[in-house]
Amino acid sequence: MELKIISKEDDEIQLEIKGESHTLLNMLKSVLLDDERVEIATYDMKHVTISDPVILVKTDGTDPIIIVRDAASKLIAQCDEFLTVFNRSLK
């Protein structure tokens, strides 16, 4: 995975996430929107097959990089939770 910062201000960031699609971005967006520090979180893919998605996050003033990083770890936690619950439900 490659990340490219398109623009960054104190409370706003636009990140291009190379090689990813709706799978990750939609999950990330949903986790970001659950964060109270986030005012706007959305992503866009200019072209369905040839573009890389660009995510825009606007915060209440917190460093947006920290916020996106937190979102990534929340996503990992969700996956871990799924795996634990799934393994338990098989027993």
Partner: peptide, 23 residues
């Protein structure tokens, strides 16, 4: 398949988190 799918998502998220920590 289910476990691999969830691990794939997890891997994507963790590689993204790793890159962001280096910024």
């Amino acid at each position: 398949l289910i476990i691999n799918a969830v691990n794939t998502i997890k891997r994507k998220a963790s590689s993204m988190g790793d890159i962001l920590s280096t910024l």
